[in-house]
Amino acid sequence: MANTMYPCLWFDGNAKEAATYYCEIFKNSKITDENAFAVGFELNGNKFMGLNGGPKYKFTPATSFVVECETQQEIDYYWNKLGEGGRYDQCGWLDDKFGVSWQIVPAVLKSLLADPQKAPKVAQAFMQMSKFDIATLENA
Rank of each mutant, 00 (worst) to 15 (best):
I31M: 05
Q72N: 08
P61H: 14
Y21T: 08
K110V: 14
Y21H: 10
F48Y: 13
I31E: 01
F26C: 01
L51A: 12
T32D: 09
V122M: 12
A123L: 15
I75A: 00
D133N: 10
N80W: 00
T71E: 02
L43W: 11
F41M: 03
K47T: 13
T63C: 13
V39F: 07
Y57C: 05
D76M: 00
P7D: 06
G45W: 02
G45R: 11
P120Q: 12
E70A: 11
C91V: 06
I104Q: 04
E34W: 11
A18N: 06
V66D: 03
M1L: 12
E24A: 12
D96G: 03
Y78E: 02
A114G: 12
Y22D: 02
S130H: 09
N80C: 00
Q117C: 13
A19D: 00
T32I: 06
N80A: 09
P61G: 05
C8V: 13
N14M: 07
K118S: 08
F26R: 03
G50K: 04
G54V: 06
D12S: 12
S64A: 05
A119C: 10
E70L: 03
E34R: 09
L112G: 09
C69A: 01
M1H: 14
D115T: 08
T32E: 13
S64P: 03
F41S: 04
D76E: 08
L94E: 03
D33Q: 11
L94D: 03
L137E: 10
K58W: 01
G83L: 02
K131E: 06
F132G: 04
K56F: 10
K47Y: 15
T4E: 10
M127K: 12
Q124I: 01
A125I: 08
N14I: 14
W102M: 08
A119Y: 09
L94V: 09
D76N: 09
F98T: 05
K97H: 09
F59C: 03
K131W: 13
A36L: 13
A135D: 14
L137I: 14
P116H: 11
G53I: 06
A15T: 02
R87E: 15
M1N: 13
A38H: 13
T63D: 03
S130Q: 15
G54F: 04
S29L: 04
G99A: 01
M1G: 15
A140I: 08
M1F: 15
N139W: 09
G83K: 02
P7S: 12
K81A: 12
K110A: 14
Y6K: 07
M5V: 15
F126E: 03
A36K: 11
Q117G: 07
E70C: 01
Y78V: 00
T63G: 02
V39H: 00
L82V: 01
S101I: 01
A135N: 12
A19V: 09
D33T: 12
A107W: 11
G86E: 05
I104T: 05
F65H: 02
E24K: 10
P61D: 07
N28A: 11
N14P: 01
F65N: 00
G83N: 00
W79K: 03
W102R: 02
Q124F: 10
F98C: 07
E17G: 07
A114I: 07
G92N: 01
G85Q: 00
C8I: 15
